[in-house]
Design a protein around this nucleic acid. Structure first.
Length: 569
RNA sequence: GCGCCCGUGGUGAAAUGGAUAUCACAGCGGUCUUCGGAACCGUUAUUGUAGGUUCGAGUCCUACCGGGCGCACCA
């Protein structure tokens, strides 16, 4: 509808002297301004030596001579807006007889890397945030029809591992039993990491030992160290898999940092004197020459830093997927400047890779009590948070008459929905301040509100089926089963594809969130004032069909956010 | 010190340079349970400061004030 109107408007504007190929056409926020509005007259009036209102009148006159049949009125308003009023039937048509999607764009290969947890370290609520955002971005792109490959880049080598293994070697008696649950084992690893970090910072002997151990790990030169390295990595990966499953996310491929290290090191070594240079025993990229920071790529022990490993990773991605059109890397925004350096080096190495690599920095999840740090052991793990909220959900489910059979799974779904929604309702670049589990809301602007709306809609549809109120379809739509006037609910439903496309192009899932909240709010109002299933009401068929359309749209939107839809709750 | 990002009701947030700045929480007042009240209806309250650009600024530019992050061998 919007697309079609836009074409007609463009034609009219061009005939009126406007030289442009794109027309801004917006949904209005206030229905008294019509259903669509354009500012084209205000933008071009000066250039054409006329006033906005005069130009608007002229465009409207041309537009009216060849007007799509779904437009009922066009008028000039305010400083020179052109407002379009759409026939009510057109919204009904659009909802129940959607036109063929005219999506001519070619399928693109998009890589999305996110979450990137560290083996030997706890998967904390910061990772939870990264995962919610990364998964949602990936789904947004999938939903728009592109071919997405989801990548994960676990950090499985580096000083943090050396610190953990060093501490383990000092604490052998408290190593968990072979049969201990994986969560217990990774908790042990996390504790060892904190202990190793503490020693590294406080004790010069320990520091020297850990640095030496780090080199041994890279070189795989000690059997006992190797064994611990493999064991710890396996525990961590098993734990991550459990979490991904619980969160409803998945990855198509995993690139390990340890595998990228030699590749990155090779690249750097081969380009010393060209891109990189030696300095104080290390190999650096002299970023200042290019307006970015100078950073170390190979440290003075000859080991590749994170920077070099990223170089290995990002070239490997393109080697594995040569047809990549866009490679997105999602990390915390504290790495924004650092990624500018990385992309610069990538461009110098291979222009194609540099051009197609895009970094998206997401905000930090920070505690009201200060920065979360796995170095000091001051972390809230993903499980702690999910379980805490889950117990609040179960508490709330207690006084619910509708008994779900699989209460536990539903509580899990609601808890995770609540967390994900809290993260995805705001711009992904800004921080989420986290007080306690109580700050995750179940009411109003929340995930459970959306889930509850979906549950309600399903209850209505079930009742309709039970009472034999047949579903209205596009074939049996007749005049007397349609309302004389549509509500804002119908108008919102029609917007969904445009909302998705905007969210996609801006990499902004929060547009989906706010749209769904508005949509669910409209549905709940409708539900409150209108008996939907009523055998004696000829309009009931229409109301039921509208409910179904709402449910389907809501389900799609929640899928993009990575939030599950329970049948009951 | 330099660079990047951010300041929106009491609180947390939204808003492709557009019209009367939207939503939720909290507060206050109502619906009284029909198809599930995790709901619905009403109400109070907001763009850090000072300039500038523009027909039009929360949004763009400049300065200031306040906050976050980054800036050589962690990832």
């Amino acid at each position: 509808m919007k697309e079609k109107l836009s074409i007609y408007l463009l034609k009219a504007a061009q005939k009126s002297g406007v030289e442009s190929d794109i027309m801004s056409l917006e949904y209005t926020e206030n229905s008294s301004n019509g259903d669509f509005s354009s500012n084209v007259a205000m933008v071009y009036a000066k250039k054409l030596g006329t006033t906005p209102r005069e130009l608007a009148e002229k465009i409207i006159e041309v537009f009216k001579s060849d007007m799509p049949d779904f437009v009922i009125a066009v008028e000039v308003a305010g400083p020179g807006f052109i407002n379009f009023f759409i026939k009510d039937e057109a919204f009904v048509e659009e909802i129940f007889r959607p036109g063929v999607q005219v999506n001519a764009k070619s399928l693109q290969r998009v890589l999305v890397e996110h979450t990137d947890p560290n083996t030997f370290k706890p998967f904390h609520i910061g990772h939870l945030m990264a995962n919610a955002i990364g998964e949602s971005l990936a789904r947004l792109i999938i939903f728009s029809g592109d071919n997405v490959t989801k990548l994960c880049y676990p950090s499985d080598i580096g000083l943090h591992i050396a610190k953990s293994i060093w501490a383990i070697s000092k604490n052998k008696p408290i190593v968990p039993e072979a049969g201990a649950p994986v969560i217990e084992r990774t908790a042990f690893l996390g504790k060892m990491y904190a202990e190793g970090t503490l020693a590294y910072d406080a004790d010069v002997t320990a520091k020297a030992e850990i640095n030496a151990l780090n080199k041994i790990i890279y070189e795989k030169s000690d059997a006992e160290t190797n064994a611990w390295y493999e064991k710890g990595k396996r525990w961590s990966m098993e734990h991550f898999e459990l979490l991904y499953k619980r969160l409803g996310t998945s990855f198509d491929e995993v690139f390990f940092e340890s595998d990228m290290a030699p590749i990155g090191k090779e690249i750097v070594k081969n380009n010393i004197g060209k891109i990189f240079e030696e300095s104080e025993g290390a190999v650096v990229f002299p970023g200042e020459k290019y307006g970015v920071h100078t950073r170390v790529f190979l440290n003075s022990h000859g080991l590749p830093t994170y920077e070099a490993k990223e170089l290995g990773l990002n070239t490997s991605k393109f080697k594995k997927y040569p047809d990549t059109d866009l490679s997105i890397v999602v990390t915390a925004n504290e790495q924004n400047d650092y990624f500018k350096v990385l992309v610069k080096t990538l461009s110098l190495l291979d222009e194609n890779i540099g051009k197609k690599t895009m970094h998206i920095g997401h905000g930090m999840l920070r505690l009201s009590t200060g920065k979360m740090s796995s170095r000091t052991g001051k972390v809230i793990t993903a499980e702690t948070l999910i379980d805490e909220i889950k117990s609040l959900v179960l508490e709330k489910m207690k006084d619910n008459k509708e008994h779900a059979t699989n209460k536990d799974a539903i509580a899990d779904m609601i808890a995770i929905g609540a967390i994900k929604y809290t993260i995805l309702r705001q711009a992904i670049g800004s921080d989420v301040i986290f007080d306690s589990a109580k700050s995750i809301s179940f009411e109003g602007d929340s995930g459970p509100y959306l889930q509850y709306s979906a549950v309600r809609a399903q209850a209505v549809l079930a009742k309709a089926k039970e009472e034999g109120v047949v579903m209205m379809t596009s074939d049996n739509m007749t005049g007397n089963s349609l309302p004389t006037q549509v509500t804002y609910l119908e108008k919102l439903l029609v917007r969904f594809p445009d909302i998705v496309s905007r969210a996609r192009s801006e990499y902004a899932p929060q547009h989906i969130s706010s749209y769904l909240i508005a949509l669910a709010g409209e549905f709940n109002s409708f539900y409150a004032r209108q008996t939907i299933v009523d055998k004696n009401d000829p309009l009931s068929l229409y109301y039921v069909a509208l409910t179904k359309s709402f449910f389907e749209t809501l389900t799609k939107g929640l899928w993009i956010l990575g939030i599950g839809v329970p049948e009951k709750m």
